[in-house]
Amino acid sequence: MIRLTNIEKRFGDLTVLKGVSVTVAEGRVTALIGPSGGGKSTLLRCINLLEIPTSGTVRIGEEELSFQPGGKPGWRDIQRLRGQTGMVFQNFQLFPHRTAVENVMEGLVTVQKWPAEKARDRAMALLRKVGMDHKADAWPATLSGGQQQRVAIARALAPSPRVLLCDEPTSALDPELSGEVVEVLGTLAAEGTTMVMATHDLRLASRIAHEVVFLDTGQVVESGPSHTLFTHPARERTQRFIATLTQQGQQGEGV
């Protein structure tokens, strides 16, 4: 279980998150949706501490860390929490100087000190899972965006994280390429992978997410089961946002 309690994040005078609390159950997929600047990416990055919350508590499984203004968490504490997570980025961020399979092996070999052969076996199994084993020895620069993102998903899964965090995983891809990424994430969701994703992609959110959290101006406006929230949003603000997403979806597909 992941529990974020009262997360506040300030950048100077700007308060990006104003006391957000979200709980994600094991094996469930939660989508964070909302307008740009609403805080969904920041909230996601607070889970693996790429952003350190100004205050609040982050709990992942058995590991918990609280933050106070001015207090800086220790490196070990950050690692303890971050080790529970894997992350997929909007722009993939594969290591360009390593082949696909080396990208997936990197965390196992460098951080977890696995022997190279064992790490390669696991990396190949993960590449097979995302349908990229035939490109194991390719350089990232020679892969399409969708292929790079699938390798990035395998890399994030390599250390067996308790939760997979996805930051706009399809936003840099055209509808066709994003389709293959949605499919891979859908398979993972069906297997019971716990995921939290920040997304604009209605297709991704409606197809995969069990729960949806709608964030605007740093606050949770509404949350609930995805079907309910997409078809019968309670708040007027949510209705307006969903309407714009649907319109864009009809015009441009995928957004």
């Binding site: 690692q79 971050r82 997570t85 992350m87 961020q93 290591f95 990197e106 965390g107 994030a156």
Partner: peptide, 27 residues
């Protein structure tokens, strides 16, 4: 080297020096 490369390295659990040695300096 893009900031995202640091974040990618951190996201798989690397320390600052591991990220520097394995990810940033080679690029």
């Amino acid at each position: 080297v893009p900031k995202g490369q640091w974040e990618a390295a951190y996201s798989i659990g690397m320390s600052w020096s591991q990220a520097m040695r394995r990810t940033i300096l080679p690029q």
